[in-house]
Simulated scan of single mutants.
Amino acid sequence: MENYRPVIGITAGDPAGIGPEIILSALSIPALYELCRPLIIGDLGVITTAKKITGSTIELRGISDHCQAEYMPGVIDLLNLSDLDFDETSWANPTIHTGKAMVDYVIKATGMALNCEISAMVTCPINKKIMQMAGFDYNGHTELIAERTGTKDFVMMMAGDRLKISLVTIHMPLRNVSDALSTESIFTTIKITGEALIERFGIKSPKIAVAGLNPHAGESGIFGDEENNIIIPAIKKSAREGFDISGPFPPDTVFYNALNGSYDAVVCMYHDQGLIPFKMVHFTDGVNTTLGIPIIRTSVDHGTAYDIAGKGKADPGSLIAAIKMAAFQANCLKKGIKRDS
């Protein structure tokens, strides 16, 4: 186990965004090769152009099959999946062609993970609008990967060393959140989160907190009845299933307590409820990881950053953290830790 270095497939993301740059910066760190064997899935021409911009001295090695990879520090093994014309493609100017390419990278990595050709996949940022313009009607990576893996129930977790949050609802207007919540969806989020904390993070007896939806967690129904009618029944059901679960807690205090070690994760009712405190703490090193799917997937927690794309100054911190977390999860899964039934 000490010498186990999982193969991590890293998708290059939107070729017009900062994905190619942060890949070069991240894989210039030799220590990452001690943790894993990174394999880039992308476009050799685009990465070569990014290399000139960043001034990177790392060697690029294009391959046509993952079996050809050598995984040596100082060399990037790149599975060349597209051949974009950079006379027509430029930084911060995505096209239908770049949209199709970035989706092809994700589809390829997902298939490789399902076939155990890679141990985990890490995704660089994509443009959701361009993804849809290219003919892929998904809200993002997660929904595409869930469909490709045949997964109905999945959870978006944002994870860092100090704080981990899971979301019951993800991308939707705030006015729709209350109607979208149900006891079953909250219970499913708790269950998937608890099992992942054990199996993928190696926490044998995780403590999970649940945030309320309303101010003061409803104040006994004064500020809303979702806590009494929906959230508390989900918590009670989770407790009967053997999870160490507490709440619902006022959202303005629960994250402080989690940061101080009282809880291993917080289950949040909606996107910004969890993402605002998370990014206050883990803005440069936060990781998005998808739970509930049969493969390991981590991702950077930022977008394509077109405003700085092609300028050689993108921060690779989140990608470095995502690669490390993917390797860590692969090692935990290899150990086979399961929840006591």
Rank of each mutant, 00 (worst) to 15 (best):
G303W: 05
S318Q: 13
L24Q: 10
A322C: 07
Y105T: 00
P251C: 10
D65P: 00
K335A: 06
V266Q: 03
G45F: 12
I63C: 12
G160T: 08
H141I: 09
P248A: 09
A109S: 14
G312T: 10
I29F: 10
N288V: 06
A258H: 06
I118L: 09
L213K: 00
A50T: 11
V155M: 04
I320Y: 01
I276F: 03
L84N: 09
V75L: 12
T123G: 09
K51V: 12
P20C: 08
E70I: 14
I76S: 06
P15K: 09
A31R: 11
H171A: 13
M269V: 04
G13H: 05
A322R: 00
T304F: 02
D264Q: 10
A113W: 01
A305T: 03
V155C: 11
H216F: 10
E70F: 12
A265C: 13
E2K: 12
G286C: 03
Q68E: 15
A26I: 05
G55L: 09
G42I: 01
G242C: 11
T188I: 06
P294M: 02
N257S: 07
I231N: 01
T123H: 09
I186V: 14
N115D: 15
G13S: 05
I53G: 00
A196E: 07
V7Q: 08
T304A: 06
A196I: 01
I8D: 00
K204N: 05
K335E: 14
S28N: 13
Q273L: 07
D137S: 05
T89A: 04
A258Y: 03
F187K: 08
K207D: 00
S119N: 15
G286Q: 03
M172Y: 13
M133E: 14
H66M: 15
T298Y: 06
G13D: 07
T290L: 08
Q329F: 06
D252G: 12
T304L: 09
A258N: 06
F136M: 09
E21G: 08
W91L: 03
F136E: 10
I245T: 01
C124S: 12
F201S: 11
A12V: 01
I190Y: 04
V122L: 07
R297C: 04
I276M: 08
E34M: 07
I76M: 09
I276W: 09
P215W: 00
V210W: 00
Y263F: 15
V267T: 01
M156T: 02
F328H: 14
T123S: 09
P294D: 10
I323E: 02
G194L: 08
G74I: 11
K100N: 12
F283Q: 05
L333E: 11
F255C: 07
G160N: 02
G303K: 07
I245H: 07
I235D: 03
M157A: 04
K236N: 12
H302V: 00
G160R: 04
S182D: 12
T48Y: 13
